[in-house]
Design a protein around this nucleic acid. Structure first.
Lengths: 218, 218
DNA sequence: ATAATTACCTAATGTTATTAGGTTGATTAA
DNA sequence: TTAATCAACCTAATAACATTAGGTAATTAT
């Protein structure tokens, strides 16, 4: 047909991989859903693995292109990290199938590290490192905060949220409580202005809300 | 031979899965390394997937048994979390093949959530939740710290460290910088004793965080 | 001693990824 | 115009596995 065959294959594969998993999806499943024979698929991709990698490759590339623009004009390291998180989480929510493949099916693959997807993901995360370094030299973050470790905390938390959301079949919004989680992480980063802590307004006489755990704050 | 056939199979599978990945390891690889025919393996396991799950199942069960004892007698939530982290990281370093299967090859599997391994991992993590709750009610942690979110930060960071270490072929020690990372996370948890902060030896003249705008509730 | 059971085996069977080797119809080169 | 090339497919192998069928020989139970 037209030149959209490759896209049809990718779209079919994306759905099927995310839905049934990589192993349980057959080439026949994919080529049939794309309206082709098995053999024809091999005109577009070297094989099943190649196809698996092609999907997130495209997505991560898009992310990378968008990121600069998103952060443009935002002042302050904490604000930038915040923007990064909100932006990323929204992208994940809008492309859950791509995210699922990246988070659940790609790490399994031995070629992952050698792959371009991986280096692009690293580039994405290196933005975080830069922001943290900026925050440290401006004094917004603690002077003794090691940037690479702070990045590990940030990325680790973020990835954990996404992974669990995907495993739980995205049955809730990723934005639930995002604000609070971000605050917890940031509290570990920020300088301690020897007084007036943003969060000390409660200073509960403790023991009071022993068992409150669902709905918090205010 | 003796009654150790099942163990031999598990040991072979563990090595091969961790080394070549689940997909690229064949039943023949495993049964041959265990000194058996393919068919004999099916006397011990229902199939390849069943075998994959049997490995971490055993490991996680052991972890769970050991944990109570490890935490016994430790006072204070932060100290308990510290002990948990150090204990867990050491267990991972001592059983990297099991860890690799849990972290890289298991999530892929669609049966994972329905599986007992998953519920045991959850039970492991629920200890963390309990400790954090204890820390909050004792006043050691901030009163407005939502325990489940704090757990996400803790677990997320921990899992991130382990995952990267595994992906990088365990080419360094997981304990490098563990102390510093732990401190960063704890700083987000702990109450701010309106003075004398452990890390404030720098006490930057602030002014840098003039532009904090992030829609701060309350 | 005989029946049942254990711990294996070899040889199918069926599913899949991948390849060989076309066909068809359009485009280009002579 | 006609012959050659190429693109975009196809059907039908091939070969690698996972899994099953059906058997054997040795051990254990009755």
């Amino acid at each position: 047909m037209k030149g959209n065959t490759k896209e049809r294959i990718i779209e079919s594969a994306k759905q099927l991989f995310a839905d049934q998993g990589y192993q349980k999806t057959t080439i026949m499943d994919i080529s049939r859903q794309a309206g082709l024979s098995d053999a024809a698929l091999y005109e577009y991709f070297r094989g099943k693995e190649d196809l698996l990698i092609a999907i997130p490759d495209l997505w991560v590339r898009e992310l990378l292109e968008d990121l600069d623009e998103q952060l443009f004009g935002i002042k302050g390291a904490a604000n930038k990290l915040r923007k990064f998180l909100w932006w990323y989480i929204r992208r994940v929510e809008h492309a859950p199938l791509d995210a699922k493949i990246v988070y659940l099916h790609l790490k399994t693959n031995s070629n992952f590290l050698a792959n371009e997807v991986y280096s692009n993901v690293k580039r994405l995360y290196s933005y975080i490192l830069d922001i943290i370094e900026e925050g440290r030299s401006s004094g917004e973050f603690r002077a003794d905060l090691m940037p690479n470790l702070a990045r590990d905390v940030f990325v680790g938390t973020m990835d954990h949220l996404v992974t669990r959301w995907l495993l739980k079949d995205r049955s809730y919004s990723l934005f639930d409580n995002l604000e609070n989680i971000f605050d917890i992480v940031m509290d570990g980063f920020k300088s301690n202005p020897s007084s007036g802590n943003r969060r000390t307004h409660e200073t509960i006489p403790l023991a009071a809300e022993a068992d409150v755990q669902g709905s918090e704050k205010c």
